[in-house]
Amino acid sequence: MTTTQPDIETVLTRELIVLEEPPAQKEACIEFLLDRAVETDRVTDREAALEALLAREEEATTGVGKGIGIPHAKSDAVSRPTIVFARSEDGIDFDAMDEKPATLLFMLLVPEEGGEEHLQLLSSLSRALMHDDVREQLHEADSKAAIEDTITEAIA
């Protein structure tokens, strides 16, 4: 793969980290995360982005197991690469193969012209999240800054 990966600091800013409990239903949770990207002016067309996200879920769930959900989409409605992060205390049924509810949620949005950027971000994020200590730290982090540091360090 030859595309350069965008800097994680520009993809996941503090305003994209949500500490409030997201809705307990998968679809509502996806809308909740998307709203944060819309509010921060990273998504120009909410409906189109939502449609792309739900189409991807329809194809195969983004509940990748180990309590992680990574709903994602590549769309014209997205103006720059974005990750929105939230945690769920109760867990959300993301149809994961290991049947574990998702408690760490990462929404990944990339512009249509992003090429392989999409896969690269997804890959880096997944690789970081395979480490038990990274997942633990994300659960335990008590501030947006701590979450930001953990993700930035784990992906770097």
């Binding site: 793969m1 509940g63 990748v64 197991g65 180990k66 992680i68 990574i70 994961a96 193969m97 392989e116 896969l119 690269q120 997804l122 890959s123 880096s124 997944s126 690789r127 999240l129 395979m130």
Partner: peptide
């Protein structure tokens, strides 16, 4: 190599 039975692990490969 990573565990082929784990969706997270397979996603981490970023295979196009």
């Amino acid at each position: 190599p990573v565990d082929a039975a784990s969706m997270l692990a397979v996603t981490s490969l970023g295979v196009a």
